[in-house]
Amino acid sequence: MTYKSTGPDPGLSSDFVRRVTQYQTAGANARLKLIALLEAQGVPAGEADDLMAALEAGALAGAQREVEELDRMAPASQGEVSADAWDDGVMAVSMVLVDIADRVWGRRGGRSAGTLN
């Protein structure tokens, strides 16, 4: 498998940093809206927040899995030293994503904290 970006939505900025900011803003707005909708349906705020933390941790785990799939996928034309550095980079990014998912998961504090259903 070779990694190939499908490119961003044409409605998003072509600038990498600005696009990340757009994703962060959209995510924060969606989180607030979903929590408000859940609360309007009688879901306690803590439980709604727990659900959002679980979704966020799951999204990070999905990203980690995609990064992990890049292991041993360094361009052959770059040589063995480059391949070793590539694999080290894949492992480093993978570990950071899991650490972030752990922190997000750890923010859960409602009734469902500690369960992995």
Rank of each mutant, 00 (worst) to 15 (best):
N29Q: 14
V104N: 00
A59R: 13
G62P: 00
R107Y: 06
G110D: 07
A26G: 04
R108F: 00
T6W: 05
G46Q: 10
A45W: 13
E66T: 08
V98C: 08
Q22N: 10
I35L: 06
S82P: 10
G46R: 07
R107M: 13
A61V: 11
V17T: 15
S14C: 10
A26F: 01
E47T: 12
A113S: 12
Q22M: 13
Q24H: 13
L38N: 03
P10W: 07
A85I: 11
A59V: 12
K4Y: 08
R19T: 01
R107V: 02
G109S: 15
S94E: 04
A54N: 05
A53H: 05
R111A: 09
S94K: 06
V90E: 08
A53Q: 09
V17A: 15
V20F: 14
D49Y: 07
A83T: 08
G106F: 08
L60W: 01
L51G: 09
A36D: 13
V20D: 10
G7P: 02
L34G: 02
G42E: 04
S13A: 12
T21H: 08
E80V: 10
V43M: 09
S14A: 15
A85N: 13
R108V: 02
R19N: 06
D15T: 13
Q24A: 12
Y23F: 14
N29L: 00
T25L: 02
Q24V: 09
K33C: 02
G62T: 09
S77Y: 04
G46V: 03
S5F: 06
L34Q: 11
T115S: 12
Q41L: 14
A28S: 10
M73R: 15
L38Q: 10
A92S: 14
L34I: 12
L60T: 00
A92N: 11
V90D: 03
N117D: 14
L70I: 07
S112H: 04
G11Q: 14
A85F: 13
E39M: 08
R111W: 00
D9K: 05
E47R: 11
A61D: 12
R72Y: 10
R103M: 06
